[in-house]
Amino acid sequence: GSKLPPGWEKRMSRSSGRVYYFNHITNASQWERPSG
Rank of each mutant, 00 (worst) to 15 (best):
G1T: 12
G1W: 00
G1S: 12
G1N: 15
G1Q: 12
G1F: 04
G1P: 12
G1M: 08
G1A: 12
G1K: 11
S2F: 10
S2N: 13
S2M: 11
S2G: 14
S2A: 11
S2W: 09
S2K: 10
S2L: 11
S2I: 13
S2R: 11
K3R: 12
K3Q: 14
K3P: 14
K3F: 12
K3S: 14
K3M: 14
K3E: 15
K3I: 10
K3N: 13
K3W: 12
K3L: 14
L4D: 08
L4C: 09
L4A: 03
L4K: 08
L4I: 04
L4M: 05
L4S: 03
L4N: 01
L4R: 02
P5N: 02
P5V: 02
P5M: 04
P5A: 05
P5F: 02
P5Q: 03
P5D: 03
P5T: 02
P5I: 02
P5K: 02
P6I: 08
P6M: 09
P6E: 11
P6A: 10
P6R: 07
P6Y: 12
P6L: 09
P6S: 07
P6G: 06
G7P: 08
G7M: 05
G7D: 04
G7R: 02
G7I: 02
G7Q: 04
G7H: 10
G7K: 01
G7V: 02
G7W: 05
G7C: 09
W8Q: 00
W8F: 01
W8G: 00
W8M: 00
W8A: 01
W8V: 00
W8P: 01
E9H: 10
E9W: 03
E9N: 05
E9K: 05
E9D: 05
E9S: 09
E9R: 05
E9Q: 07
E9T: 10
E9C: 12
E9P: 00
K10E: 14
K10P: 09
K10R: 13
K10F: 05
K10N: 02
K10A: 13
R11Y: 07
R11T: 02
R11A: 05
R11V: 06
R11G: 03
R11W: 03
R11H: 07
R11Q: 03
R11P: 01
M12K: 11
M12L: 13
M12W: 15
M12T: 13
M12A: 08
M12P: 05
M12V: 15
M12C: 14
M12R: 13
S13G: 06
S13N: 10
S13Y: 07
S13I: 12
S13M: 11
S13H: 15
S13F: 08
S13Q: 12
S13A: 10
S13R: 06
S13P: 01
R14L: 10
R14A: 13
R14F: 06
R14G: 10
R14Q: 11
R14N: 10
R14S: 12
S15Y: 09
S15Q: 11
S15N: 11
S15H: 13
S15P: 09
S15F: 08
S15L: 09
S15C: 15
S16M: 09
S16L: 10
S16A: 09
S16H: 12
S16R: 06
S16P: 05
S16N: 10
S16Y: 07
S16K: 08
S16W: 05
G17L: 06
G17S: 06
G17A: 05
G17Y: 03
G17D: 07
G17P: 02
G17W: 01
G17I: 02
G17V: 03
G17F: 03
G17M: 06
R18D: 08
R18H: 08
R18F: 07
R18L: 10
R18T: 07
R18G: 07
R18V: 08
R18P: 04
R18W: 05
V19L: 07
V19F: 12
V19H: 09
V19M: 08
V19G: 03
V19P: 10
V19D: 09
V19S: 08
V19N: 05
Y20T: 00
Y20R: 02
Y20L: 02
Y20I: 04
Y20S: 01
Y20V: 02
Y20A: 01
Y21P: 04
Y21T: 00
Y21E: 01
Y21I: 00
Y21R: 00
Y21K: 00
Y21V: 00
Y21H: 00
Y21D: 01
F22W: 09
F22V: 06
F22A: 03
F22D: 03
F22Q: 02
F22L: 03
F22H: 09
N23T: 01
N23D: 04
N23L: 02
N23K: 00
N23V: 00
N23F: 02
N23E: 02
N23Y: 02
H24Q: 10
H24F: 14
H24K: 12
H24R: 13
H24A: 12
H24Y: 15
H24E: 09
H24W: 14
H24T: 15
I25K: 06
I25N: 08
I25D: 09
I25W: 08
I25G: 05
I25Q: 09
I25M: 09
I25A: 09
I25R: 07
T26L: 04
T26A: 03
T26Y: 04
T26I: 04
T26H: 04
T26P: 00
T26R: 02
T26F: 05
N27E: 06
N27H: 14
N27W: 05
N27R: 14
N27Y: 07
N27F: 08
N27K: 15
A28Y: 10
A28N: 10
A28Q: 15
A28W: 08
A28K: 15
A28F: 07
A28I: 15
A28H: 14
S29F: 15
S29G: 06
S29M: 15
S29P: 03
S29K: 12
S29R: 14
S29Q: 09
S29T: 14
S29N: 05
Q30L: 01
Q30N: 03
Q30K: 02
Q30F: 04
Q30R: 04
Q30M: 06
Q30I: 03
Q30W: 04
W31L: 09
W31V: 08
W31E: 07
W31H: 06
W31A: 08
W31Q: 05
W31F: 10
W31G: 05
W31T: 07
W31N: 06
W31R: 08
E32H: 10
E32Y: 07
E32D: 09
E32A: 07
E32N: 06
E32K: 05
E32Q: 10
E32F: 06
E32M: 06
E32G: 07
R33L: 12
R33V: 13
R33D: 12
R33F: 15
R33M: 11
R33C: 09
R33W: 13
R33G: 04
R33H: 13
R33S: 06
R33N: 10
R33I: 11
R33Q: 09
P34N: 01
P34V: 01
P34Y: 01
P34L: 01
P34D: 01
P34K: 00
P34M: 02
P34A: 02
P34G: 01
P34E: 02
S35E: 13
S35D: 13
S35F: 12
S35I: 13
S35W: 10
S35R: 07
S35M: 12
S35G: 13
S35V: 13
G36E: 14
G36D: 14
G36Y: 14
G36I: 13
G36K: 10
G36R: 11
G36S: 12
G36P: 11
G36W: 14
G36N: 12
G36M: 14
